[in-house]
Each structure stands twice: as C-alpha cells, then as structure tokens.
Design a protein around this nucleic acid. Structure first.
Length: 926
RNA sequence: GCGGAUAUGGUGGAAUUGGUAGACACGCUAGACUUAGGAUCUAGUGCCGCAAGGCGUGGGGGUUCGACUCCCUCUAUCCGCACCA
C-alpha cells in the first residue's frame, strides 16, 4: 500500500472494532472507570448534519485518550426518540411516528458509523421503546408516591405522610405543598372521605395535578409553546391563541430549588451556565405583605424584595388572569376591565415580558388600604404582572421601580419620593434604587436602604401582616403534553375521579394505536381516539403524555445497564459507573434538561436508589455549527449570473446556491448548470475567469441549501480528516460557521504522516531502528507534552496544530525512526484512530492501539542548553541576553545590568524574563 | 425586557499566570519538479513606507515599566427565556 488510502483503512478498522467489541464496557472493579457522555440526539428526518458530530468527536477523543491511559471507559450513545417532528410528520402523512423514528435512527446510526466513534452500541437506549419508557413511567410513579419533607430536606414515601396524618394531622408537618392546603387534625383526617383524602394528598405529591395556564389554540385544539405563538396567533395556520387554565400534571421541582442551587457549587459547569441556572431558579429574599381591600373580605398578598419601600406604594397592580379580578372590579369599570382581560388573554407570556415600551393597564375601581398610612391605594390591572411569579399582585412603588414609574407617569398616578440624596431621583439617568436615606417613611426616616429593609420586615412580622419570605422565580415544571408521541402517563381515574397510579407490575403502559394523530373533536389529546384506552375496560386512562424531557432526565443511568428488565439499572452497575465524568452538549439545555436531570437524580438519591446527588461532574458546552450560505447574483430579467464583486454593476437578485457545488466560494459552473433545470442554459459574467459566490452565515437549513452532511466529507477526505478538521475549526465551545475551505490542510497533514512511515521504494513502509537523536526526541516529546496539556484542558483545536508542527519538523529532518514514530502515532490515535491503528499494525503490533498506552513526556528532552532572555524595556522587547538555561538569579542580574539601557531590573512574573526599568522611567520613579 | 456569550490579518484561529501579538492552517504571490495533479517541495505574505521607522487585537477611557489579557463605558452580532429537543 503505497498511497494513503483512507477508504480501505477506515473500513477495515471499523469492522475490526465491531468484531472485537473493542469498546464494549463491562463493570470491572479492578479498573478505574471513566464515564464520557454525549447529549443524545433527537433523530430528525434531515439526518445528521456536520454540526452534530462536533461534540461527539470531542467526547470520542477523550474516551480514546482515557482508554489508552488505562481507564475502563463507558461511552454510550442512544436516541431521544419521542418528539414533536415525528408527530407532525404523522399528522401530515399518516405514517406512524414509530416508523419514522425507526427510519431516522437507522440513518443516524449509519452516519455515525462511518465517522469511527468508539461508542459501545450494546448500551444503546431509545426513549420511545417500551423497554425504556417502562422505567420512565416507573420513575414517574415513584415521584407520584412521594412528598417533600422540608425539615429533613428530602423526598419521602407518601405512605409515611399518610401515617403522620393518621397520628398527628398535618399541623406540624413542614412540607413542600400547595399554598391552599388546609390544616387538619388526625381525627379530621380519619373522618374524611377517600376522595377528600386523595385531594389532600395531591397537594403534597411531588408530581401532582393542578390548574395551570397554557397557550390554548381552540382552532388546532392543542396547546402551543410560546415559540409557536407569534403576535397572539399560532405560527401554524395563524389561528387565535388564548391563555387558558387547564388541569395538568406538574413536577414539584421547586421543592429542590435550594439543593439545585447548592449543588452547583460542587460541579464543574462553566460559570456562565451556572449563572443561567441560578437566574432561572431566581432565589430572592424578601417579605410577604397583606393589604386589606376596601369594602371586601379579600386580603391581597404581595411579595416584595424591597420591603423598605412600602411607604412609596401609591397603587397596586394585579395580573389580568388573577382569580379575584372580576370580584374586585366595580360596575363602572367592568366593561373596560373585561375588555382588557380579554385582550391580555391573547398575548403570550413572552410578549408580555419582552414588550416594556407599551404601558397598558386598567383601573378596577377598588382600593386597597395601605397597612401603615391607612390611605386608599387604587388597584389596577396590568399585563406586565405575571400570574406565575409571586402572588400575581405587585405593590407598585413608582419612585424606585422603573416599570412602576413608567406606569405611574402614563396614567398620571402619584409618585411619592421616599429616598433622598444623590442618585435617588428615578426620572434621572443615574438613578440608583438603593442610594440615599429614607424620607416620608415614618419610622424608617433617616435610615439607609440596607438598614430599612430588616427594620420593615420585623415591623411587618410584629404587626402580623406578613413575614420574611424566600421567593423563587422558578415554577413547578409542567409535565403534561397534549400529544401522541410521548410516554403515556401511568395513571387512571376511578369512579370518584381520583387519579390512581398503575401498579408496577402493569408497566409498561404501552402507547395505544390511534386512527389519527390529531386532537379529538372535543379537544381531547390524541390518546382520546384510542379505542378501549381504559383500565380494566372501565376506568379512563390519563390522555396526556409526558414531555420530551421525561426520558432524557435519567437516560445516563439506563446506559449503565440498558437491558435490565427487573430494575431501571443494576445498583452495582450504578455504584461502579457512578457520576458522568464528562458530559458534552449544547448550552441550549442549560435551564431545561440540565435542571430536570439534576432534579430527578436528587430525587432518586433521596429515596435511596442511587448513591450520588449530582449526575454530571463536568460539563462542556459545544458551540453550534452554523451554516455558511453561498449566493449567486442573477441579472434581473435574464439567465445571466454575475460574479460577486461585479454584482453592483447590474440590477441583480440574490439566490441561495447549494453550498455543495461551491468550493472556496468559487462556483462549479458545470455542476450549477445541472443543479436545477432552469439553470441549464445559464450564462456567466466572470472575474479572473472564475465565478465567485457571495457568502453569509445563517442557521443550517434545507431551504437555504447550506446543509452539509458529514457523509460527503467523509467520502471525499475520510473520517480521520473529518474528525481532525472539526476539531481544527476552533475552540469546541465557540459558535462558528461551517466552512470546508481549510480542510485540505488537515488532509495534507495525514498524508505527510503516512509518508513519514512510507519512505521506502515506491512508497513502501519503512522505518529506521536507529536510535533517535536528542533533537528528534525533543520534537516528539514537545508534542507529547503539548497534546497531553491540550487534552487535559479540552483544547482540541490546538492539538491538531501541535501534530502538524511535529510532523513538519520530523519531515524536515527526514526522521523515520521507530522510537519517535511509535510515540507520535500513539498521541495521534485519539484524534485520527483509523490511520493510527493502521500505522500501529505496520509497526509490527498485534493488538489495537487502544491498548497501547499514552506516552508520558520526558521533560529532560525539552531542556534548552542556552536561553535567550528577552530584555523588556517599556513593555517592548529591545534586546536578548543569551545565558545558560540553568543560569542563577545572580548571573541573570549581572548580565542584565551589563546591558547599556538597564539601570534596575526585576524578575518577570513569568520565569525566564528580564524586566527592565530603563533610565528615564527610573528618573521619574526615584 | 431579563439572563448569557462573542469581537484578533483577506479567512479559520493561536498567544496556559499581564511579558517578543498573528503559532498552525486556508487563501494569495513567486519559484522548483513533471506520470500536468484536487500531487509534492522551497520562499514570501498584518497594515503604511524605498528605507529607517511608524501603526496595529470592535470604538472610547483607565490601571501598569508593560494590556488581546484586568477595570469602566459604548457599539455590533449571536443564543436562551418554561409545550422545540
């Protein structure tokens, strides 16, 4: 084999790995484990594009590196195969989502296969397979049958709660539960009807039914995501959408809010990502406060983080969907309020948050009574108040809150100044809400904001009109989807309407067949169409399915023991593989999947199924690869296309052109003519004999003709080139457009590497057994050191450069010594495994290079005899002083002072650097 | 709006703790070779300038002997915001 023939080599080694189960991982207590996980993909119909493998390549490199270092590596892959696109496709075509999903998965596996990943396919999981979702349902039941004891700060079995109710009622129980839970004694509990007891328990369960607001589209008969609502109408079809309350299953993730916050301290996620989670959880300390309502029994409760500003309250604002709106509206205001509420219904939460420029609201006609001044405070309704956060009522303090100020200005409501001093005027640009001393605030006058806050809170508590309170922005996670293609919720409703969990033995509750994947005529979810979807033929099953995040919240556990029919995974396997050591995936999951899976992990820990509280020890977010679109410019009214830089000489229309017939922005004219029939007779106005296309970075999508599939690249350059190039493109975390322009560079590198081993006649394999010189050892050990460092800090792009430097230098020295090449091939192996295996075999080894070990740098080879010490003057290097590498401080000083410009010297913070203070500066300083 | 990120040659990017900015690669220029290639090799390539030299890390300001790096501020672009996965 003379030439580097990647096709044969890659085929051969991929077959070898499969036959030998090279990457099959088994629990082995004698070896240290390393668990590398990728966020598993949703198998979409478009197939794998060039952006997907980015993270997989990085994790594969780490897996292979760790394996070479002797770790027992678990590196699995699977599919998050429940989801909306397959369902949409089913609605359009009638094809069963399972079938679509199956087809897509095979395509994904095929595409993944040719890239040469070290996945252990024996561990594959699919969230949509009944063997898998049986256990998703099982976990659901565990959560359903649990409550959260806030005193013990952990989840417990619901049976324990029932036992407590029976002995002492619920007065002494501190639990995470619904706010409207009534207090009762043991006696009262025992006298309750079964239905009543179950309703109480529902308020405690960690997954529970409650009424929550959703975006309801009556026309489509379905609930929509905020994303799918644009300007009050559905993205699909443009039908009106309204906010509507619906009975939904939720997960009481708020019970874990504090632990989710604290847990962040012990895991290695990037600070920005942790910030995103902290912000999402949104813990704030403040105070609840009660306002009586004039001529009403109602007491409005508000939450505020600025209790000190109570004296600045000049009006109240309520969310339009607040349940007391109708009651608090006076007859004169009723028409106006109802119109406003109706209008607010059509605005999505997102719009209401985003749009702060439009001030809108309406007066209810009612007044609250200020608890301190006794003055009447008008109650308004405004859609900037969201019902989901806090109590849905805000005490408005226009002198310290910009939104309240805008509202007050717009509706001409009074603004009471309560802070005095600099920066305390909200109408000025330099306003600081926490500056100055309190004024117009009775007993708070003269205090700073910092002093006033606790003073007010203790006063409020003393008066019994409120209490110090911790508030979270995070809401309980809605767990219901009005969809077909998801896990059925293993619950049925008995004759009393009580939600009853299935027994474990009845799992999985298989997804039934339906005639259509649409909601029923009465607006029930698609499962309402399933014939006989009843427990024992009489009790209706829950018609909703679980959300996409259900299956993905625990899949990393299933990988450890994916075929287990007795448990979600063998405890021994979970004890061994334990936490995920390295998790790679997109940052878009920061507040979704990454919080939910942390939540479920903590839950499973609480009830004793696993031994760790945090699922992922370290997380790296790979950046998205965007598409790079190419354009041609058609002269209007002709079939003539003008090259990019000449386009302004004509009236042109810009058209997307398939990036696969463009190289280095140069259009392949022949391919273009055959690309679409209407371009068959196209003419071209060229520059320098070429047609140059325009380019722009956009999201990768079919309609923009900028989707690049890995298959094409692998086909042309090979998997090793593809792997190296994806890494070479830039830092893993960075967002970047795909661009094939530089791929020749890494391809050339592999060819050079191949030729280093093939210097014999006609390119025959030939290595020398001569002893390597110190220079040669230095070259390869420098590479070992740098690549090891790179791997340890997950800087994959720099590794590729370091390989290139090493090979270039060896090539210049015409070095083909076995001693040097052996180490070189070992460090290249994680990155370009196929060529490495081939060269490793040619070097006479019988076993896979994965068992070869990873070389350790011998620092002795890197030592310099002499070192040029830079002389820095005014921050610039002005001279160099040559000294032995091991020169002592005294010697350096002597040499430095001997230099004409040097009057005084200091040692640089970086070793081996002479920092010089030149004469003129010294004169100034001294 | 809230939260997060990014900005370095014609291009992708490097610079690990504040210490020779532009490694490595693409592209481009010139040359060598000839089985005329999507091959290989050599040299050059931040900008201005004949040169000496000057200027240079999105803009402005600051700290420092010295700033891509630290601080303040502005601008532009991208991502998330709860039923997309």
């Amino acid at each position: 084999m003379a030439e580097y023939n990647f096709r044969d080599i890659e085929k051969k080694w991929q077959a070898y790995w499969e036959e030998n189960s090279t990457f099959n991982a088994q629990v082995d207590e004698s070896k240290k484990k390393y668990y590398v996980l990728d966020m598993f993909p949703y198998p979409s119909g478009a197939g794998l594009h060039v952006g997907h493998p980015l993270g997989y390549i990085a994790s594969d490199i780490v897996s292979r590196f760790k394996k070479q270092q002797g770790f027992n590596v678990l590196h699995p892959m699977g599919f998050d195969s429940f989801g909306l696109p397959a369902e949409q496709y089913a609605i359009q075509t009638g094809q069963h989502p399972a079938l679509t999903t199956e087809t897509n998965i095979s395509r994904y596996k095929e595409q993944l296969g040719i890239i040469g990943f070290s996945f252990d396919w024996d561990k594959e999981v699919r969230t949509s397979s009944p063997e898998y979702y049986k256990w998703t349902q099982w976990i659901f039941l565990q959560i359903f049958n649990s409550w959260y004891d806030t005193k013990a700060d952990k989840a417990k079995k619901i049976d324990e709660l029932v036992a407590l109710f029976e002995t002492e009622g619920n007065q002494n129980i501190k639990a995470s539960c619904d706010e409207d839970t009534p207090l009762f004694t043991a006696e009262a509990w025992k006298n309750m009807a079964r239905k009543e007891q179950q309703d109480i328990l529902m308020k405690y369960r960690l997954t529970f039914l409650s009424e929550t607001f959703v975006n309801w589209c009556p026309e489509l008969g379905t609930v929509l995501a905020n994303d799918e609502v644009i300007g009050g109408v559905s993205e699909r079809g443009g039908h009106p959408v309204e906010r509507k309350k619906m009975w939904q299953w939720s997960m009481r993730i708020t019970a874990y809010a504090d632990r989710l916050l604290k847990g962040l301290e012990e895991i290695d996620f990037s600070e920005p990502l942790k910030d995103m989670q902290r912000n999402w959880i949104g813990k704030s300390h403040g105070c609840s406060l009660h306002f009586n309502v004039e001529n009403s029994e109602r007491v409005l409760e508000v939450f505020t983080t600025r209790a000190d500003t109570v004296f600045g309250v000049s009006f109240m604002t309520m969310a339009p969907e607040h349940e007391w709106v109708a009651e608090l509206t006076t007859d004169e205001q009723r028409a106006e309020v109802e119109a406003y509420v109706e209008q607010a219904k059509n605005r999505s939460e997102r719009e209401r948050m985003t749009d702060v420029k439009t001030v809108s609201g309406v007066f209810t006609g009612s007044y609250a009574i200020h608890p301190f001044t006794g003055k009447k405070v008008p109650i308004w309704i405004a859609d900037y108040v969201l019902s989901g956060y806090g109590t849905g009522v805000v005490m408005a303090v226009p002198c310290s809150d910009t939104r309240d100020y805008a509202f007050a200005s717009h509706f001409d409501l009074p603004v009471v100044r309560i802070q005095e001093g600099e920066k305390t005027d909200i109408s000025q640009d330099d306003f600081d809400a926490k500056a100055g001393k309190m004024i117009n605030s009775d007993f708070l006058n003269g205090m700073s904001v910092k002093e006033a806050m606790p003073a007010m809170i203790s006063k409020v508590e003393e008066m019994g009109i409120g209490e110090a309170k911790v508030q979270y922005k995070m809401r309980d996670a809605v767990f219901t989807r009005q969809r077909y293609w998801g896990e059925p919720i293993p619950v049925y409703f008995d004759e009393e309407g009580v939600a009853c969990p299935l027994d474990e033995s009845q799992l999985p509750l298989n997804l039934p067949e339906v005639d259509e994947y649409l909601p029923t005529a009465t607006g029930e979810p698609p499962l309402g169409r399933a014939a006989g979807w009843k427990k024992d033929g009489k009790y209706s099953y829950e018609l909703s399915t679980m959300p996409g995040w259900a299956g993905s919240s625990w899949y990393f556990l299933r990988y450890m023991d994916p075929k287990n029919g007795e448990a979600f995974a063998d405890p021994k396997a979970m004890a061994y593989w334990n936490q995920v050591d390295l998790y790679i995936g997109g940052a878009e999951h920061a507040t979704g999947h990454l919080l939910y899976s942390r939540f479920w992990t903590k839950f499973l820990y609480d009830i004793g199924y696993i031994q760790f509280e945090e699922p992922f020890k370290k997380l790296i977010n790979q950046g998205m690869i965007q598409g790079r679109s190419n354009f041609v410019y058609r002269v209007n009214g002709t079939n003539k296309f003008v090259s990019h830089s000449l386009r302004n000489e004509h009236e042109t229309t810009r058209l997307h052109v398939d990036v696969n017939i463009v190289e280095n922005d140069q259009l392949d004219i022949e391919a273009f003519k055959t690309w679409r029939p209407d371009f068959k007779d196209a003419e071209f106005i060229l520059e320098d004999g070429k047609y140059i296309c325009g380019a722009e970075v956009e999201k990768m999508s079919k309609s923009k003709f900028n989707v690049v599939n890995p298959d094409d690249i692998v086909n042309r350059f090979g998997a090793d080139t593809f792997r190296l190039y994806e890494m070479f493109l830039g830092p893993l975390e960075q967002f970047k457009p795909w661009n094939t322009n530089g791929i020749d560079g890494v391809y050339k590198f592999l060819k050079k590497l191949w030729r280093l081993f093939h210097g014999g006649a006609n390119g025959a394999f030939q290595v020398s057994d001569e002893k390597a010189t110190k220079d040669e050892l230095k070259i390869v050990h420098t590479a070992i050191k740098k690549v090891t460092d790179d791997l340890e800090r997950f800087s994959f792009n720099t590794s590729v450069s370091n390989f290139m430097i090493c090979v270039n230098e060896l090539q210049t020295k015409k070095c083909n010594k076995r001693e040097v090449l052996t180490d070189l091939v070992k460090i290249v192996a994680p990155y370009a495994p196929h060529i490495a295996e081939e060269l490793w075999t040619l070097l006479g080894n019988k076993e896979s290079i994965t068992k070869a070990g990873f070389p350790v740098c011998n620092e002795a080879y890197l030592k310099e005899d002499a070192f040029l010490y830079p002389v820095m003057i005014n921050g610039k290097m002005r001279a160099k002083i040559e000294l032995p590498a091991d020169a002592s401080k005294e010697e350096i000083e002597k040499a430095a002072l001997a230099h004409e410009n040097v009057v005084k010297w200091t040692e640089g913070k970086t070793p081996k650097r002479v920092i010089v203070v030149p004469k003129k500066i010294v004169n100034l300083v001294i």
